[in-house]
Amino acid sequence: MFKRDQHTDNENVAVILDGETTNLPGNMSVAASLLSEGRIVAKISPASKKPCSPHCLMGVCYECLMEIDGVKQQACMVEIQEGMVINRRLGTMEED
């Protein structure tokens, strides 16, 4: 859904995403980093049980709420860091 512009050279960081070591571009928010890799689903809505993706990317909508280092946080408001533990709890849902 998104691609990185050629002039960007954000070095990758290694994080543990949903239990697996994953390399993601650094120097941006967790939400942007996941979107840049085509991982558009941020959470399963606890109310509707349907997948949600980030909507506003400025801290308003809470659609990108996920567990980051043990605390539920808005992924668009947290910078991605080496070694972060990120859990989206997507359950059995398969990502494109």
């Binding site: 859904m1 998104f2 691609k3 990185r4 512009d5 002039h7 960007t8 954000n10 571009p25 941006m28 928010s29 942007a32 980093s33 979107l35 840049s36 558009i40 689903v41 509707s48 349907k50 997948p51 949600c52 993706s53 980030p54 909507h55 506003c56 990317l57 400025m58 909508c61 659609e63």
Partner: peptide, 30 residues
């Protein structure tokens, strides 16, 4: 925020969100 049918589907975003992604992370819709 304007709730049109389907606005909560993954793949629907604010235009401002795309603008933010461009500024913050150099991302362009593909």
């Amino acid at each position: 925020p304007c709730p049109i049918p389907g606005w909560n589907l993954p793949g629907v975003m604010g235009a401002g969100a795309a603008n933010n992604l461009a500024k913050e992370a150099g991302l362009t819709p593909s």
